[in-house]
Every structure is written in structure tokens, then in C-alpha cells.
Amino acid sequence: MALLEIKNLHASLEEEDKEILKGIDLVIQPGEVHAIMGPNGSGKSTLSYVLAGRDGYEVTEGEVTFDGKDLLELEANERANEGVFLAFQYPVEIPGVPGMTFLREALNSKRKYHGEEELDAMQFLKLVREKAKALEMGDDMLKRAVNVGFSGGEKKRNEILQMAVLEPTLCVLDETDSGLDIDALKIVADGVNALRNENRGMLLITHYQRLLDYIQPDFVHVMAAGKIQRSGGKELALELEEKGYADFTGKAA
């Protein structure tokens, strides 16, 4: 059974009544890493929000099956607890909410959802410290409020830390490379690569080929004007790097 199956997905912004996704088809099998590349405004981020269940988008046609379940029927928090994880392009700052309180609440929500026992503060701290070490995140970072006072790179690392702790089965990474210098990109990529396994699927959304030097995808899709225009292996990314998106949009991007 496919991990994720998107069939003819159409979606628009509720407020503007403007169709952004115009028939997406995509199948991700367990263990596969897919990259979606495309110019700005192609609908890449909308796809990630629709998968994560953000309010404000209306699915007008098509279906999304995740692990055999109708994903579109579920609330955002239920999708997360089922194993869908969106690493945000712009992780949100939440002053006043300690990062550790937030992450423990998130993990325990998932455990509760699956009928597992919740972790106490000590058990949780031990788990997080272990995962954080690999991402070079010290206690001083863990102590802060959610993303408050974090640099762009630290925010992205924090996303990967959450991913490592919550152990999702589908990771959607929205422009995870944006705003990262080479060192930060390597740490983040190592974190992502460490999470690759035979059961977990990944969807990397990116504008640039650069990220794919560090996280090698099994498949590359080009998205433009709300549709997947072409699919191929990782060599497609190199081709795009050379030629740009002009073939798909009619103009150089």
C-alpha cells in the first residue's frame, strides 16, 4: 500500500476563490524520498498546507489517501498524530510558550492518540537531549520559548528536532533550505538523512537544486501552474539547475 496517494487534487484559497492546485497526482511509497521543485507561485507551499490541514484552503476536487485513510477528513492535529509532519518554511515564534513544554505536549498528544502512556518531564528531557545533540542544539536553545530569539538556521534545526522527536511516517519539508548557510544546511541535511528509513516517506519542496546535493531524492517532480509538469529521477534536478523553469512557465524564473 502506498504511504501517500494524491489523486487529481484541486484546491483554492477560500477567500479569493482562485484555484491554485489544478490536478495534482502523486504517489509516495514507504521509504521513498520525493522532491517537488518549481518556481515561486507554482503552488508548492499550498500543496504542503493542504496536506497538513491548514484552514483557509478549499479542496474542490480529488482525494488524498494517507496510510489507507482519507487524509482530507482529518483535522490538522489528527493528521499530525497519524504521522504527517510539515517542516515549516517559516517556523512560527510563540513567545511565552517554552519550547520544551510545547514539544512534550506535542509528543504526548501523539502518544495519547495512539493509546500509549504519556512521558513525564524527566523521560521526555532525556529523549530530547539525545536527539538535540545530533543537531548541535544545546540546553540553552531548548530552554527558550518556541523559536523566540532563534536565527533562521536555528529555527530550521528546531523543525528537524521536532521531526526527530515525533517520528512521523511522512515528512513534508517546505523550503527547508531557504535562509540557510552551507554549515547550517549540512547539519539540517544530516538530521533529515538520519531519519530516512524503509517505512518513512519524505516530500522535499524546494526552489533550488542545492538541497538535493545533500539529501538525495529518489524522484524529482517539476511543478508549475498548479500541476506536476514532469517527473523523473534525480538527474532532472540537475537539468533544471542548468535550464531553469522557463520550459514550464514560458519565462525564466
Partner: peptide, 8 residues
């Protein structure tokens, strides 16, 4: 949305 997307 950020909190909900993390399962809360």
C-alpha cells in the same frame, strides 16, 4: 496552526 500541525 503551528501548534495544531504538531498534533495539539
Amino acid at each position: 496552526f503551528y501548534l495544531k500541525a504538531r498534533g495539539i
